[in-house]
Design a protein around this nucleic acid. Structure first.
Length: 106
DNA sequence: AGTATATTTCGTCAGGCTGC
DNA sequence: GCAGCCTGACGAAATATACT
């Protein structure tokens, strides 16, 4: 159930960056090699890291999702404009044909 | 100016869906 | 099952607009 797929437009708005969203746990090394021991503290740290990583990934996913939605809406708006124009043209055309028909009939 | 109200943007959570 | 992705819903903050 996703929006149409299309290439990114790449127009980045110029915002102020919000509250210090603690960017990435820098150099998150997914701890310890398979055989190593884990102190409770290490385990807690790992859990924190996993949580932060999850949040970060979701944040990025949400950004992409918002971007796609915006693009989708823009696309729909364009389509509305096109269809409105077509409609206008068709109405004109119909009117012209009706006129023509009337004059012939007389 | 300042401030009240509306709109936009972004991050988080929850829950569905999919591939493994 | 479950890990990972996607997206709707929601709230908070930023930004825009209307008004005095």
């Amino acid at each position: 159930s996703s929006y149409f797929s299309s290439a990114a437009t790449g127009d980045m708005p110029t915002y102020q960056i919000r509250a210090p969203t603690t960017a990435l746990p820098q150099g998150v090394v997914m701890a310890a090699s398979p055989g190593s021991l884990h102190s409770p503290q290490q385990l807690a740290e790992e859990a924190t890291c996993r949580g932060e990583l999850r949040l970060m990934k979701n944040r990025e996913a949400a950004q992409e999702c918002h971007r796609k939605k915006k693009e989708y809406v823009k696309c729909l708006e364009n389509r509305v404009a096109v269809l409105e124009n077509q409609n206008k043209t068709l109405i004109e055309e119909l009117k012209a044909l009706k006129d023509l028909y009337c004059h012939k009939a007389q």
